[in-house]
Every structure is written in structure tokens, then in C-alpha cells.
Amino acid sequence: MTALVPHIRAMSFQRLAQSAFGRWLARYNEDRFAAVCLSVTAGFLVIALAGPFFALHKPGDLAAIELADSMLAPLSKSAIGDVRYVLGTDVLGRDILSMAIFGLRTSLGVAFAATGGALAIGCVAGLAAAHAQGAAAAAIMRTVDIFLSAPSILFALLFISILGRGAENTVLAILLVQWTHYARAMNAAATAELKKDYVAAARLQGFSATDILFRQVLPNCIPPISVILAVQFGFVIALEASLSFLGLGLPITQPSLGGLVADGQEYLMGGAYWISILPGSILLLLVFCMNVVGDRLRVLQSPLSARGGTC
């Protein structure tokens, strides 16, 4: 039985590799830098999910904190004499790495929630507007244009001033700002696809309007949306971090990377850079990787790469 396991595993890898997704992934990985960035992003997700089991200090767990270990630089010796704080400690002796892991969890959680909601609302709105083509559709798209004409953070601040602060309101504010990106992308893609001849052919064959929208048009809109998704996901992470840095995002009780950077600012002048700079570097890395992934996705779907070379 155990001899079969590697065989089964090999078979399923083979199946995966030969499937459409496997082939797409192979094409994606041709750019090694982008492949590394994708792995790093995946790595961050794994850390966010599994990290709490390995973290030295959990938020709110005051017992594990050693006051004697406060303000230690990264990789320096603790009071006991061992090296346990990879990223150093803050003024209370809390391990920066642990706080960063939990901050990462929160940031990713907010980003997923806000992006998921924005994606759902935006895609439905964009698709409906492309299909309906009436005055209501035009009104929706005009609203989208207005939202997109000014920077997101301004609107986010505005929404927070109306809704109030807190974790849910932060997610809501970001969601209200972000849905417009997906609405516009989906509308543009769907409008372009609806004009194409294969849609007309499908109508002539007798397919219903919903059939055409969801089975013919929607699958072709996925590539451009995926590019926007990758880039905007990174943007949302940065936006939440900025809001938390300003003290207007997540409350102090909930650790977030932006909040960590803000907390550490006062110690910066004294030379304790690691409290602010290191969590910020994590943000930088995450957003950078998402941007590279988004770029690679965009390159992959351009028609030149699909056919490869001159005609």
C-alpha cells in the first residue's frame, strides 16, 4: 500500500501538470523573477496562516513577554543569553517578528475581505452596466468615473469620517473605494466582448441573454480582471497600512503592520530603527511581489505572447 503512495502522488502531479492550469503555470514560470515573486507571495500566505503556531509572542499574552528583553536590536542576545528575537523587540519586550506575523494576518485578512467584496460588487455592476446599456447603466459608470478620478485615500478618509473608526468600518471604507476599479475593468472588458462577432453568432444560434453573458462573455473577461486584481490587492494592503499608520484605520488593539510602523516612529530618532523599518519592509516586499505578479499576468495575456512571433 505504501509503495503505491509515491505512485499516486506522481500521478496526481502529472495530472496537475498536464491540466490547463499546469500548462498555464509553466508558461508563467518562464519569467523566473516573476516566479520567485509568486512563491514569495505564497510564502507570505503560508506564514500568515501557520505563523501563529510558531510565533514567540501572541497579542494579548502578557505572560510570555520579558521586560528585560526590551529594545533589543535584531539578532542580538536576550537577557538569558540566547538569540531568539530575529527582528528585535520593542519597548515592552515584545518580539517584533511575532507582532509582524499577526500584523500580516490582520492586513491580509482586511485585504481579502475588502477585495472580495469589492470584486463581487464591482464585477456584477460592471457586467450589468455593459449589458443594460440604459440611463441607469450610464449613471453607474459616471459614478465610477468620479470615484476613480481622485486618489483612493481621500475617499477612504472621507468614508471613515462618516462611518467612524474600527476594523469593520475600515474594511467597509476600503471596499467602497475599491469596487469602482473592478466595475470599470469589467465594464470595459464586457463592452468590448459584447461587440465581437462570436457573441452575435451565439445570439443567432439561439442562446439566451444570460447564457451569453455568463458563459461566453464572462470567461473572456477574466484575464484583464485578474491583472487588476493582483495590482489592486497590493494597493489595498498599502492603503490599509497607510490608514492604520495615520491612526485612522484599525484600532490599536488589533495589530497591523501600518500600526506597528506608527508605533515605532518615536523610537526612530533614538536609533531603534527595527521597530518601524522592519515591519514596513515586509509591506514593501508583499506589495512589490504582487505588482510583479500583476505585470506578469498582463504580459501573459497580450495577444503577442499567445501566438508567439510573426505571422
Binding site: 462577432d197 452575435a200 453568432a201 451565439a202
Partner: peptide, 14 residues
């Protein structure tokens, strides 16, 4: 039924 002018847009690419 109809045949269109641009063969590249006549079929669903997916």
C-alpha cells in the same frame, strides 16, 4: 445563420 468578416473575432477564444 451568419458568417462574419473578421475570422479572428468569430469564435470564442476560450
Amino acid at each position: 445563420q451568419m458568417i462574419f468578416q473578421n475570422p479572428f473575432a468569430s469564435l470564442n477564444p476560450r
